[in-house]
Write a protein that binds this DNA or RNA. Structure first.
Lengths: 201, 201, 201, 201
DNA sequence: TATGAATGAGCATTCATTCAT
DNA sequence: GATGAATGAATGCTCATTCAT
């Protein structure tokens, strides 16, 4: 909505974002009340509407703030083992996910509730998969990856594997450490992508 | 809740289940109203409470009815290519998911909202992963699968891959056919699990 | 909205109408609160919405109930003095207006606020003027009324005169009795309509 | 409230008046918001209260500005046909009403809402009727008007006729031109007032 | 004076649940 | 069992008004 024009306004808006995060993490989206967010931020109910038009809007802002470093796959093309860089990316992702776990649950909720958020999610998934697909294609060009894999669907599947593990581990509370998650992911990505004859040699 | 004692009661209960499915698919869980479910079932609001205590309860019943054939991995141990049976399982899963897509979205929603449903989901995920892990172990024993893979975490990851693809395809509306999904899944499971030297030979 | 299906429902609906009239007369439209109407009717706030969708809707119903005998001009064609019947009609109108004065004020208010009500008012005004115009035309045919008068605009003007007097007398509280109002109205209608040469003769 | 002390203040106050008129014409009184008036005037919400204490007050000022030339009946005592001057007055009134139609609707609204405005209206109506009554009395004295008419109530009625026609024509949107309105009014005033035997002679 | 953020009372509306018939 | 009316707590949102800067 409107950006605050004064420093005081900026402070209030920031406080609302912090308060919203707290409340969303505690109560989820549906059960979060605007009044709670405002009171958590130390301001009156009405002030909420000075900066946001709806619960959806402030949630979008909260999620945006929390997801700056979500993006993942980078490939160090000249590295002897390209999977090392990928694994580092996955580690960062898992760690980030772990520290935003409650928020990730809220993201599930809003994605289930609101087609707009679902669209955002789909577009982000696509963007990520395209980047992952480029990595796969690069590996294929370098003769490292199985040339028969169709990069994009493969990317979709391998990305999904990662986020699903994160969901089970940190949202549902499966008992897996980040190390285990990274190891499992890495092993499967490596196996799934690598040209077999290569290692066999 | 109480099972209906009369045939008429059984009819009303059944009508409520059908109505609930319709309404949940149309409006989702949060936005579904008991009054709508009842009117969809052609009975009075009050009658709902004769058979169900809450929206959660009737949703559980609806989901239960819809998920009879969800379970997947069967291994034909003596088949020349064990992945054929796995692929068939995946196809069944995708097809089932496709025809229950709206309901799957409602499942996401309620899992995000309600810890009880989250627990059910976690237990189901574990049960499925245990079965998948057994398959992997069996393949390892037969010398088909990479012996270095830890069966359970691997199973978790590969299962997640499948359900994530289904979610993106049928809930978010990514443009992928069941054939593509099965092919992609099969290729990756095969690559990920297979002992490399085996094929290389 | 929905008509009540049971006798109890009919009772509640009727009580709401009575309560609404009381509240509208006391507070006007804008300042009337749904909660007050309900409590005046002796039922819970929510019950209001079982029978009406909005304040506008219940006001329309209240006004409809109050305006059954508003319609006016009847001409006794064969009477020696046709203005006697007209005067009787005006008397009824003024008396009715007097006993609904507060409600008439609310009608002004809602007509100013809501184009829909304004439309209703316009259509009613037209219908009334058409009937008055027929009376004027009949008088012209009988040679009683000035043939140069255009019946419809004249009807509009003379009708307006009546309702305006009523408004000033009963809403604004001008000090005029019904007798005076009728006398004034009658004298002016008579003068305005009558063919001069007639009486002059 | 306080008159502005500086030129800048005068400008702001003037802008608020213009903005208020715009907003009142667009939204009516109840739905007009102080914030909108201020923003329409290009100043901050708070500045409104430097010059006006309430919506009522600024509306009163807006109406005052708009109604300078509303007053009507002037009698050219020595004119051969005194109704010509009256008709000219009515024409001015209708033209003025037409160009302030939206504001006249707001006047209806506030008169319905606020007893103070109702009082003002009543007093203005009385003042006008007194002047009209003087005209009638003068005509009676000159032997032009029916001596049996009681000047004041007659004035009330004939004034009401005029304003009612204006309301129907310009607020409710009845299809009548100013010429028609003037002609109708003139004909009826003439008929209603004139001593019959006079014309008959 | 001007600003625009902050306030918070006030009200409409929804809907799960109960219960008399 | 079925009905559907009644309940009333819960909450989102508005907006006139104040006030610190």
């Amino acid at each position: 909505m409107t950006e605050p024009a004064t420093a005081r306004g900026a402070r209030t808006r920031a406080a609302l974002l912090v308060g919203a995060r707290t409340v969303f993490e505690r109560d989820g989206f549906t059960d979060a009340r605007i009044a709670d967010i405002a009171s958590e931020a130390g301001c009156a109910t009405g002030s909420f509407y000075t900066y946001f038009t709806s619960k959806e809007e402030i949630l979008a802002a909260v999620l945006y703030d929390a997801q700056h470093d979500v993006m993942r796959p980078t490939l160090d093309v000249d590295a002897p083992d390209p999977f090392v860089a990928l694994a580092e990316g996955h580690r960062r992702y898992f760690e980030n996910y772990a520290s935003n776990a409650r928020l990730m649950l809220v993201l599930e909720e809003i994605a289930a509730l609101d087609p707009t958020f679902r669209d955002v999610r789909r577009r982000r998934g696509e963007a990520l998969a395209r980047r992952t697909a480029e990595v796969i294609a690069a590996l294929q060009e370098r003769g490292v990856a199985d040339p028969e894999l169709d990069p994009y669907p493969t990317a979709r599947a391998l990305d999904g594997l990662v986020s699903h593990l994160a969901y089970y581990a940190f949202v549902l509370g499966e008992d897996m450490s980040v190390d285990e998650l990274v190891a499992t992911t890495n092993r499967i990505w490596r196996n799934a992508l690598t040209l077999k004859s290569l290692e066999a040699s």
